[in-house]
Simulated assay, not measured.
Amino acid sequence: MFRDLSRPIETGMPTYPGDPDVTLAPDATHEADGYATGELRAGTHAGTHVDAPRHTVPDGEAVDERAVGSFAFDARLVDLRPLEPRESVDPDALPDPSALDRDTDLLVLRTGWASHWGSERYRDHPYLTAAAAERCRAAGVGVGLDAFGPDPTPTAGGSGESAESGDETVASHGDELEPDGTPAHDVLLGGSLPIVENLRGLEGLPERFRLYAFPLRLRGGDGSPVRAVAEWE
């Protein structure tokens, strides 16, 4: 069986705060030109996408420098629900590295935040602590998520004074927590491990499946939108 786990690319779709807006518009039309073409403007991290190490590691690999086969993953679904807004995911919430077979190379984390896509609450997704990311790195597995990413996402206009939360340093903005840096990204991408973000349709998937997330061949790209597809028997 196959299932599309990708977000549709469309004008006005949600983007990570500060990233370019997405527009998809007609260029040529059948009525005016006798054929149809469109113009797409989007950032490299629009919609469902993969992060290349270069995203947060200055000398890391670009998306086009990785073997195409490295974007076909033997995935294991980890259902972390229920989780509170901006709740940290600690190492003990993830499988012990010794319990992972050698074929597993991606943990797909179901936080439940896919249901908030298109609303401001989507920003308030749970996130991995640096220690949880280190656990993944020790096991040699990357991470896929149904959220903006493995680190906290800024709130709308968030800013404030520093405060401590678990083993992450964040800034306080009212009752919200603002990120300081990208520790989970840095750990995973620093270990040349994949990150797949903004997945959808994780409900009902088996614990083990194959995930295909092939990027565009962007020269020197720090990431790329993908058509993420799950396959299982």
Results as ranks from 00 to 15, higher is better:
residue 49 H to L: 09
residue 148 F to P: 06
residue 218 L to T: 11
residue 87 E to H: 12
residue 119 S to H: 13
residue 104 T to H: 07
residue 183 P to K: 00
residue 199 L to S: 00
residue 204 G to A: 05
residue 201 G to V: 06
residue 139 A to K: 05
residue 147 A to D: 02
residue 133 A to P: 03
residue 117 W to R: 08
residue 90 D to V: 15
residue 186 D to I: 12
residue 106 L to F: 01
residue 60 G to C: 08
residue 223 G to C: 09
residue 191 G to M: 03
residue 14 P to V: 05
residue 202 L to D: 01
residue 186 D to H: 13
residue 94 L to C: 02
residue 9 I to S: 12
residue 88 S to T: 10
residue 35 Y to T: 14
residue 84 E to S: 10
residue 49 H to G: 06
residue 118 G to C: 13
residue 52 A to Q: 02
residue 208 R to K: 10
residue 116 H to F: 11
residue 123 R to L: 10
residue 149 G to L: 03
residue 142 G to H: 00
residue 231 E to A: 15
residue 10 E to C: 07
residue 139 A to T: 05
residue 67 A to P: 07
residue 46 A to P: 04
residue 98 S to H: 12
residue 170 V to E: 00
residue 173 H to V: 14
residue 90 D to G: 12
residue 92 D to F: 15
residue 53 P to D: 04
residue 157 G to T: 15
residue 70 S to H: 03
residue 75 A to W: 00
residue 125 H to Q: 09
residue 32 A to D: 14
residue 123 R to T: 02
residue 116 H to P: 04
residue 127 Y to Q: 01
residue 5 L to R: 00
residue 93 A to E: 15
residue 128 L to S: 00
residue 117 W to E: 09
residue 55 H to T: 07
residue 111 T to M: 04
residue 51 D to M: 11
residue 19 D to G: 14
residue 47 G to S: 15
residue 54 R to L: 07
residue 199 L to R: 00
residue 174 G to N: 07
residue 11 T to D: 10
residue 113 W to Q: 00
residue 218 L to K: 06
residue 151 D to Y: 06
residue 69 G to E: 05
residue 173 H to D: 06
residue 182 T to P: 04
residue 28 A to Q: 10
residue 52 A to P: 02
residue 204 G to T: 09
residue 97 P to Q: 05
residue 98 S to K: 10
residue 114 A to E: 10
residue 222 D to G: 08
residue 4 D to V: 09
residue 35 Y to C: 06
residue 142 G to P: 02
residue 212 Y to G: 15
residue 184 A to T: 10
residue 193 L to W: 01
residue 131 A to V: 04
residue 103 D to A: 12
residue 31 E to Y: 08
residue 216 L to A: 15
residue 125 H to N: 11
residue 69 G to L: 08
residue 175 D to I: 13
residue 155 T to S: 14
residue 210 R to G: 06
residue 154 P to Q: 12
residue 107 L to M: 07
residue 69 G to I: 00
residue 16 Y to H: 13
residue 203 E to Q: 13
residue 55 H to V: 10
residue 62 A to H: 07
residue 180 D to L: 12
residue 218 L to F: 12
residue 1 M to V: 09
residue 109 L to N: 01
residue 10 E to F: 12
residue 126 P to Q: 08
residue 158 G to T: 04
residue 165 S to D: 06
residue 221 G to I: 05
residue 233 E to C: 08
residue 197 E to S: 09
residue 154 P to I: 14
residue 70 S to E: 11
residue 198 N to V: 08
residue 94 L to N: 03
residue 180 D to G: 09
residue 130 A to H: 07
residue 33 D to A: 15
residue 92 D to K: 02
residue 161 E to T: 08
residue 62 A to S: 12
residue 209 F to C: 04
residue 41 R to Q: 03
residue 77 L to Q: 08
residue 109 L to H: 01
residue 101 D to I: 03
residue 220 G to D: 05
residue 39 E to H: 11
residue 179 P to G: 05
residue 92 D to C: 11
residue 25 A to E: 04
residue 37 T to N: 08
residue 63 V to I: 09
residue 151 D to H: 03
residue 225 P to A: 08
residue 156 A to N: 10
residue 32 A to C: 08
residue 204 G to M: 03
residue 172 S to K: 08
residue 110 R to P: 00
residue 153 T to I: 08
residue 111 T to W: 05
residue 72 A to W: 04
